[in-house]
Amino acid sequence: MRLKTSFRYALYAAFAGLALTGAGWLLADWQKNIAADESWQEIAATMLMVHGGTAMLTLLLLGALIPVHLMRAWRSRKNRISGVIMAAFNAVLIVTAFGLYYLGSEAVRPWMSWIHLGAGFALAVMFPLHVWLGRRDSGITAAGARTAV
């Protein structure tokens, strides 16, 4: 289920942006407790703001991905296992992001945070694996050419 090049690159950019800003926030959040100055606090706040904005864009892309990729691949029985894992990780990330942003419970927040971090970094590993598995199954090389079958 090869995606249009511009849409595929938009997805790659969005997921890379989420992974980088998530990792950047984690580093800045860890450093703000160690460093004496407030620069890490500002960096953490900026990373979180960019991460949230990128997440909103990614939600739009995921919504568009459902009819043009997910449903078609499901019906053709292609790459189902990694696709279900991708959908599940994205669902967990959406639910935990909602919880982190809108729920004020200090008892639940640390759990939501750890689940969100774990699912986010797992998705960062799973995303290229899903692409690789899909290309392998369809006989498409990294350059976009079809291999002889």
Rank of each mutant, 00 (worst) to 15 (best):
A143W: 10
S76Q: 15
H116N: 02
S105T: 01
A142C: 08
G63P: 07
S6L: 07
G99S: 07
L117N: 06
L117H: 06
D137N: 09
I85A: 09
K4M: 13
L103Y: 10
G139C: 08
H116A: 05
I115L: 07
D29F: 12
A19M: 08
L117F: 13
L60Q: 05
A143G: 13
F7S: 03
L93I: 14
A16F: 11
G120H: 01
L60D: 05
Q31R: 12
E38R: 04
A23H: 02
L103R: 06
L117C: 07
A16M: 08
T5L: 14
W25M: 04
Q31I: 10
A44L: 01
E42A: 15
A28E: 04
T5K: 12
A97V: 06
K4I: 15
L93Y: 03
A64N: 06
L11Q: 10
H116D: 05
G118W: 12
I140A: 02
W114I: 13
F121R: 00
A14W: 03
A45N: 04
R135I: 08
M47L: 03
R146S: 13
I66R: 01
S138F: 05
L103M: 13
M126Y: 03
F127H: 06
I85R: 00
G24F: 03
I66D: 09
G17I: 08
Y101R: 04
L27R: 07
A91E: 05
A91S: 08
K78C: 12
L103V: 15
K78W: 10
L123G: 02
I66H: 03
I34A: 12
S6N: 12
A88S: 15
R109Y: 09
P67A: 09
K4L: 14
A28M: 07
L133C: 08
R80M: 12
A16C: 04
R77P: 01
F121L: 12
D29S: 15
G22N: 01
Q41Y: 10
F7N: 01
L65W: 05
H69T: 07
A107C: 04
L20H: 03
Y101D: 08
A145M: 11
L93M: 14
N79G: 04
A142Q: 10
E38T: 12
L62Y: 06
